[in-house]
Design a protein around this nucleic acid. Structure first.
Length: 907
RNA sequence: GCGGGCGUGGCGGAAUUGGUAGACGCGCUAGACUUAGGAUCUAGUGUCACACGACGUGGGGGUUCGAGUCCCUUCGCCCGCACCA
C-alpha cells in the first residue's frame, strides 16, 4: 500500500492546469475539521419549537472489545448524510449516539481476569467513541448515554417499577395504575393473601415459578426467543440449554398483543419486518369447544380455528404436560401413558421438532363425545400438541388438517371427509372424499348435518360454515369464538452480575415490594466473584452486605438477586437521548413532546422482532400511563443490508483463508497447494481472514473515502460484498474533486456557462431527491458526473464551486469543509443552507429524439423542444436516415411522445 | 410448507407513470506524460459478426406501436418463521 499523504503527484505540469503543488493531504485536514466540529459543538441540538424537528436514530452498538467493524459505519453514514442534509434544510436535528454496554463478554472477561466489567466497558466505549469520531459523524456528543451508568439505569429501574405497578384493563385495552384495580368481592372475602395473589396475577411484571430455558454454558436462564430452532443458545452458540423450573421475573407482553399488531399499520416500516412481528405475535381466531368426557363429570376444552370441521373430528389429543393426563388415563393404559409423558418431558424441544417427521402418541383409554355427531372418539396423548398454546388440547380432524392426518394414518384412526374440495383436481378430490388425502382449503360441506340438534352446514363455504357453527355453539353453551396469540410472557431475569439490578425487595413475611423512587438507583455491589452458580443463582446472592436489608420496623428482607436482560436498556434509550442529563425525571415532558416520535430509525434486520417488539411494548405502557405522548416510538424504520466479503473455497467446499489465495488471470489459486479456488461471498470472519477494519481504511484512504464507499457500494438495504478496488474508486473521485476544486486556477469570477449551470442544478436536484429516497449510491454517481463535467469545462465560477461544496458536504464533510475554507469562508460549510434548485437552468430549447422503427432505436434526431407532433412526425420520416428503414415498406403508424420518443411502425 | 425479497456486462450496480437497456464506479485495452510509477490525463469497452447487421435484463409464453418494468408459467438464489390446532 502506498503512502497516501505523500506526493505521488510529482508533476507540477499535469494537464490541463499548471498550479502550485497541493497535496491531497486528507489525514491532516480530516483531523482538523473533526476537531473544529467538536470544539464548536456545531451539532448540538436543543428543543426549539420555532423550527421543525427531525429525530434520527441509529441502533446503538454493544461496544465489544473487537472495536468497530465496517458494518457499523454503513448505517451511521447514511443517517449522518440525512442529518447534515436536514440541518441544511432548516430542520432542528436530534442525532445522538450511545452504548448498549451491559452484556456477557465484559462479565466473562471479569471472571477470567478479575477486571471489573465497568473498567472493560469503559475502555471499549472509549475505543468505539474514538473510532466513530474519526469518521466525522455529526453526533451531538453531549447526549451520549451508557446503559451501564447508574444515572441511566436508575431510570430503567424506574420504568420497571412502573411496569410492576401497572395492570392491563382488557375492556379499555389499556394499561392502568395498579391502585385502580378493582378487587372482586369474592377475592376480598378470602383475605389478605388472596387479595395479594390477585394483584400479583394482574401486574405486567410478576415473579413466579416458570419452566424456563437454562443455558449450562452461560449459567443463566434465557428467553424462549434466545433459543434457536436447532436448540442452540443465540448468545453463546452452544447447545447446552435445558428446561428448568425456576422463580423468575416475567413481563405480560401478551396483553398488548392486539395493540402491538394494530399499531404496525400506521408505521412506515419495511413490510417484511411488520410481517415478522405479526407472525411472532401469531394472532389466530377460532373457537373454544367443550367435549364431554365419558365416565368423568368433566368437559375437555379445546381450541380450534376450524370449528366448522367438528363433524369430522374423529379423535382428540391432549399435550403430555396437560394436568388432566393422569385423570383421563384408564388403569390399563396407565403405565404406557406414564412412560410416554416421562419420555416427552426428557426430550428437549429440539428433539421434539427434529423428530417432527414422525408423529408419536399413546391412547389414554378414555373417550370423549363429539357434540355434533354424538359419537365416541378416543382421547390420545401426543407431543405434537403444545401445552403453551390454546388449551393444550385439540379436537383432531384428520381429513382437514395435515398434522392430524399424519397422526391418524400412523395410528390407524378413521378419516372422515366432511368438506368436498369441489375445485380440486379430480384425482385429488377423489382421494380426499375417500379419506386418503387431506384438504385444508375451501369447498362445500358434506356429512355435516344433525337435524336433532338443529345444525346443518352442508353445501356452505368455509367462511359461512365457521360462523354458523360458532353461533350454534354459543347458543348451546358448548363453546365460543376465541382469539389466541402465540406470543408468551417475556422472561425478564438473568442470573448474571453485569446487568441492571431489579429494584425489588423480598421480605421475610412473604411480601414483595418495589424500592421507592427516592432510593433509586439500586447500584451493583462491588464483588470479586462474578461467576454464577450451577444452580442458577446470581452472583449477587453472595454479596451479603448488599443483599440484606431491614425496614424501619425491623423487618428483614433480601434484595432481588437476578438482573435484567440486555434488552432492558435498549427498550427506552431513545427517550433518554431527549434529555440525557435530567436527574429529576427520565426526561422532561415538554422535550419529549417536541422530539417524539423518532422520525427515522436505522439499524440491522437482526432486531426485526425482539428489540423492536420489546421496545414498542414498553413504549405503549408508558403511553398508557401518560409518560410519553405517542403510541409508537419509531415512525420510520430502515434496515441497512449486511456488508459481506469475498472468501474462497476449494472444489469440495472447504474454506480457505484469504491470505492463502493468489489471483492470477482472473483465477484464484491456493498459494500452498496450487489448487484453483472458487470465489464466494461470505460473512466477514476471523477464520476466513477477510475482516475489514475501518481504522485501516481510514488510515489509508481517509474517513470520507470510507463513508463514500459504503454509500456507493449499492442500495443501502441490500447485502453487498466489500472490495478494496471499490474503495480506491471513490478515493480517486475525492482526489479528482480535490485537484480540481482546490486549485484556485480553476475557479474564476464572472458568469457561469449555461452547460455548467445545467449540470450543477441537475446535480442539486438529483442529490436532494436521492437523499430523500435514501438512494445514496446514485447521488454519489451524480456528483461524479458533475466532476467529470468540470474537468471537461476546465473552469468554473466560485459560485459553482461553493454550491458544489455544499452538495458534497453531507457525503464527504471533511473535503467539503476544506474546499469551503480554501474559498476564504470563515464559518463551516456544515452551517450553510442547502442550495436552491432552479429548474429554469434545465430547460432546453431542443430535444434529441431517439427514432425507433418497430420499437428498435435506429438514429437520433435533434428537434426544437416545442415542435408540434405532426411536424415531428413529418421531419422524422422525411429524414435521410429514415429512408433506409422505410424503403419498400408501408408506414402503419407513427407514435410521437413529446420530449420522449418517436416510434415508426412499418410493415 | 408459509411469509418477505431478489435474478440486468468480467464485477458492484443504473434505468419517473411501460418510452434510447447497461448511468456511475471497478476491471480491462490503447494512447499521452515520464528521473518507467500500483500516479495522473485522454479515448475505448454488453455479446456475436467486428462492414451491413443480428442478438441481448434467469427460461418459456402473452398484452402493447413499444416490456428489465405489466400479466401467466417455470427455474434458481437469499432472509425470516415453522407441529401455534
Amino acid at each position: 500500500m502506498h503512502h497516501p499523504t505523500f506526493s505521488y503527484f510529482c508533476g507540477s505540469n499535469v494537464k490541463p492546469f499548471i498550479f502550485t503543488r497541493m497535496d491531497f493531504n486528507f489525514s491532516v485536514y480530516e483531523k482538523k475539521w473533526q476537531q473544529y466540529w467538536l470544539d464548536n459543538k456545531v451539532f448540538a441540538s436543543e428543543a426549539d419549537t420555532s423550527k421543525p424537528k427531525f429525530y434520527c436514530l441509529d441502533m446503538f452498538p454493544y461496544p465489544s472489545g473487537a472495536g468497530l467493524h465496517v458494518g457499523h459505519p454503513e448505517g451511521y453514514t447514511a443517517t449522518d448524510i440525512i442529518c447534515r442534509y436536514k440541518r441544511a434544510k432548516g430542520f432542528n436535528v436530534l442525532h445522538p449516539m450511545g452504548w448498549d454496554a451491559f452484556g456477557l463478554p465484559a462479565e466473562q472477561y471479569a471472571i477470567q481476569t478479575g477486571t471489573h466489567p465497568a473498567i472493560t466497558t469503559q475502555k471499549n466505549c472509549d475505543t468505539f467513541r474514538r473510532q466513530i469520531q474519526s469518521l466525522g459523524l455529526s453526533y451531538d456528543w453531549d447526549r451520549e448515554i451508557n446503559t451501564t451508568d447508574p444515572a441511566y439505569f436508575k431510570w430503567t429501574q424506574w420504568i420497571f417499577i412502573r411496569l410492576y405497578n401497572t395492570w392491563f384493563d382488557k375492556e379499555q385495552q389499556k394499561g392502568r395504575p395498579i391502585d385502580e384495580l378493582v378487587i372482586p368481592s369474592e377475592i376480598e372475602e378470602q383475605g389478605k393473601d388472596a387479595v395479594r395473589g390477585y394483584i400479583e396475577s394482574k401486574r405486567l411484571a410478576y415473579y413466579d415459578n416458570a419452566q424456563v430455558w437454562f443455558c449450562k454454558h452461560c449459567k443463566t436462564v434465557c428467553a424462549n426467543e434466545e433459543v434457536l430452532n436447532d436448540g442452540s443458545h443465540e448468545k453463546c452458540g452452544t447447545k447446552e440449554v435445558e428446561r428448568r423450573f425456576l422463580k423468575q421475573w416475567m413481563l405480560r407482553i401478551p396483553h398488548y398483543a392486539e395493540r402491538l399488531i394494530s399499531g404496525l399499520d400506521k408505521l412506515d416500516w419495511p413490510e417484511g419486518v411488520k410481517d415478522m412481528q405479526r407472525n411472532w405475535i401469531g394472532k389466530s381466531t377460532g373457537a373454544e369447544v367443550d367435549f364431554e368426557v365419558e365416565g368423568l363429570d368433566k368437559k375437555l376444552r379445546v381450541y380450534t380455528t376450524r370449528p366448522d370441521t367438528l363433524f369430522g373430528a374423529t379423535y382428540m389429543v391432549i399435550s403430555p404436560e396437560h394436568s388432566w393426563v393422569p385423570e383421563l388415563t384408564t388403569n390399563d393404559k396407565k403405565s404406557e401413558v406414564e412412560a410416554y409423558v416421562k419420555d416427552a418431558a426428557l426430550k428437549s424441544d429440539m428433539d421434539r421438532t427434529e423428530l417432527a417427521k414422525e408423529k408419536t402418541g399413546v391412547f389414554t383409554g378414555r373417550h370423549a363425545i363429539n357434540p355434533v355427531t354424538g359419537k365416541q372418539i378416543p382421547i390420545w396423548v401426543a407431543d405434537y400438541v403444545l401445552m403453551g398454546y390454546g388449551t393444550g388440547a385439540i379436537m383432531a380432524v384428520p381429513a382437514h388438517d395435515h398434522r392430524d392426518f399424519e397422526f391418524a394414518k400412523t395410528f390407524d384412526i378413521p378419516v372422515v371427509c366432511i368438506l368436498d374440495p369441489k375445485n380440486a383436481e379430480p384425482e385429488l378430490r377423489k382421494k380426499v372424499l375417500a379419506g386418503n388425502a387431506c384438504w385444508t382449503d375451501d369447498g362445500a360441506y358434506i356429512n355435516s348435518e344433525n337435524p336433532e340438534l338443529g345444525l346443518n352446514i352442508n353445501g356452505m363455504s368455509k367462511k359461512d360454515g365457521i360462523q354458523t357453527v360458532i353461533n350454534w355453539l354459543g347458543e348451546r353453551n358448548l363453546g365460543k369464538a376465541t382469539v389466541n396469540y402465540k406470543i408468551r410472557d417475556w422472561l425478564f431475569s438473568r442470573q448474571r452480575y453485569w446487568g441492571e439490578p431489579f429494584p425489588i425487595i423480598h421480605w421475610e413475611d412473604g411480601e414483595v415490594t418495589a424500592v421507592t423512587d427516592e432510593n433509586l438507583p439500586v447500584e451493583l455491589p462491588k464483588t470479586d466473584k462474578y461467576q454464577p452458580s450451577e444452580s442458577g443463582e446470581s452472583p449477587l446472592a453472595n454479596v451479603s452486605e448488599w443483599l440484606e436489608v431491614v425496614d424501619e420496623n425491623g423487618r428483614k428482607g433480601r434484595r432481588e438477586t437476578n438482573t435484567m436482560p440486555q434488552w432492558a436498556g435498549s427498550c427506552w434509550y431513545y427517550l433518554r437521548y431527549i434529555d440525557p442529563k435530567n436527574d429529576e425525571e427520565p426526561f422532561s415532558k415538554a422535550k419529549e413532546n417536541y422530539w417524539m416520535p423518532v422520525d427515522l430509525y436505522v439499524g440491522g434486520a437482526e432486531h426485526a422482532v425482539l428489540h423492536l417488539l420489546y421496545s414498542r411494548f414498553w413504549h405503549k405502557v408508558l403511553f398508557d400511563l401518560g409518560i410519553v405522548s405517542t403510541d409508537e416510538p419509531y415512525q420510520r424504520l430502515y434496515n441497512q443490508g449486511m456488508i459481506l466479503a469475498f472468501a474462497y473455497e476449494t472444489a469440495s467446499g472447504s474454506k480457505v483463508p484469504s491470505d492463502l489465495v493468489d489471483e492470477r488471470d482472473g483465477k484464484y489459486i491456493h498459494t500452498e497447494t496450487g489448487e484453483e479456488l472458487r470465489q464466494i461471498v461470505a460473512k466477514m470472519s476471523k477464520s476466513l481472514k477477510n475482516v475489514v477494519n475501518p481504522d485501516d481504511v481510514t488510515a489509508n484512504y481517509g474517513a470520507d473515502s470510507l463513508r463514500l464507499y459504503e454509500m456507493f457500494m449499492g442500495p443501502l438495504d441490500s447485502t453487498k460484498p466489500w472490495t478494496d478496488t471499490g474503495v480506491k474508486g471513490v478515493y480517486n473521485f475525492l482526489k479528482r474533486v480535490f485537484y480540481f476544486f482546490a486549485d484556485t486556477n480553476n475557479i474564476v469570477e464572472g458568469d457561469e456557462s449555461k452547460e455548467t449551470l445545467k449540470a450543477l442544478h441537475q446535480t442539486i436536484k438529483k442529490v436532494s431527491d436521492d437523499i430523500d429516497d435514501m438512494k445514496f449510491n446514485t447521488a454519489i454517481s451524480q456528483m461524479m458526473i458533475f466532476t467529470n463535467h468540470c474537468y471537461k469545462a476546465k473552469k468554473v465560477t466560485r459560485d459553482t464551486a461553493e454550491t458544489f461544496a455544499k452538495v458534497l458536504a453531507p457525503f464527504a464533510p471533511h473535503l467539503a469543509e476544506e474546499l469551503w475554507s480554501i474559498y476564504g469562508n470563515k464559518k463551516g460549510v456544515c452551517l450553510e443552507a442547502w442550495p436552491q434548485f432552479d429548474a429554469s437552468y434545465l430547460v432546453e430549447d431542443t430535444f434529441e429524439y431517439p427514432v425507433s422503427f418497430n420499437g428498435k432505436m435506429r438514429f437520433k434526431l435533434t428537434l426544437p423542444a416545442d415542435m408540434p407532433k405532426e411536424e415531428v412526425e413529418k421531419t422524422a420520416i422525411t429524414n435521410e436516415l429514415a429512408s433506409k428503414w422505410i424503403e419498400g415498406k408501408q408506414i402503419v403508424k407513427i407514435i410521437v411522445v413529446p420530449k420522449k420518443i418517436i416510434n415508426v411502425v412499418v410493415k
